[in-house]
């Protein structure tokens, strides 16, 4: 209770308290929506599983044993085994690491890139804007998956190249959002006031414009995560992403497709994992949108 009133204090006594209070309030708002909580729980579970994968999984991800090929789900093998006799449950658990890595790297590469390009473009307008947005539009005009496929094929198969290919296809959408937001901020008097204090354009963009774009960016990235996971799985399925024997979910589905009718579990189990995690990100993203919506944000 003391902690709570400290956090909700309307006249905080330090920078830290002010920031913590804001975070706490956002957290409280998020907790009000059960679906958001569910989404957050799924993501938290994903992260924990990835961290503790070797301890959670009963077997190693590459433990072949041809004597127990294609066993159906049972008490011993919760998700059955695949054509090389590997425990699918263990592979799905280890696969969380790959999924999490893809998601995190794509977010780390493409969101800041898009944010920066969009903010610079919107802030300076004129020629800078026209050139940057021209490039952005070229990328946007092509279907995402096709573009990712083209890049992945050009760069060669492999998980790193798949990540780069996906990142390249996702930033333009972020740049567009950031630009739109920047246009509304650029003419605000507080940016004029900052410039009058002697702040450089760089400082205005980094310290004044970007912080106001980030909330819509966080929402968008979270909602896009599902798409990113699906694209990564798609690339894996087509053999352009992670290479066997890596336990990448898409590649695992692909591995089971020749016996999908008789041994359905080989493809279905990693499919469930993909759906669950994608849904988790969608729920969380929806909740974040309700809470962080930039329109209500300015009043927060």
């Amino acid at each position: 209770m003391e902690m709570r009133s400290w956090l909700l204090d309307d006249s905080p006594a330090s920078r830290g308290q002010a920031a913590a209070g804001r975070a706490y309030r956002i957290g409280l708002d998020l907790m009000r929506n059960p679906l958001t909580v569910l989404g957050a729980a799924i993501i938290a579970l994903l992260v924990l599983t990835a961290i503790f994968a070797p301890w959670i999984a009963p077997e190693a991800w590459d433990g072949q044993n041809l004597e127990r090929r294609l066993l159906p789900p049972s008490a011993e093998h919760w998700m059955g085994t695949d054509q090389l006799g590997r425990d699918i449950f263990s592979r799905v658990i280890h696969g969380t690491r790959i999924t999490l890595m893809i998601v995190a790297l794509v977010a780390v590469i493409s969101a800041p890139l898009g944010l920066l390009i969009g903010a610079v473009s919107g802030y300076f307008s004129g020629w800078t804007d026209r050139i940057l947005m021209g490039v952005t539009d070229v990328f946007l005009s092509m279907p995402k998956l096709v573009l990712a496929l083209a890049f992945a094929a050009a760069l060669g198969p492999g998980i790193e190249n798949a990540i780069i290919a996906i990142a390249i296809t996702t930033w333009p959408a972020y740049a567009r959002i950031a630009r739109a937001e920047t246009l509304t901020i650029r003419n605000a008097e507080f940016t004029d006031a900052a410039r009058l204090l002697g702040a450089s354009h760089t400082r205005v963009i980094l310290r004044h414009v970007l912080p106001l774009c980030t909330s819509s960016m966080i929402i968008r990235v979270t909602l896009d995560m599902a798409g990113i996971i699906l694209t990564a799985a798609g690339l894996g399925f087509l053999g352009l992403g992670a290479q066997p024997p890596a336990p990448e979910w898409g590649a695992m589905i692909s591995g089971g497709r020749s016996f999908i009718f008789d041994q359905w579990w080989v493809s279905t189990m990693p499919g469930f994992a993909i759906i669950t995690v994608s849904l988790g990100f969608c729920f969380l993203g929806d909740g974040l949108r309700d809470v962080l919506d930039p329109k209500s944000e300015t009043k927060r």
Partner: peptide, 9 residues
Amino acid sequence: YGSLHPRKT
């Protein structure tokens, strides 16, 4: 209202 950044203390 416009001259203060909405997210700065």
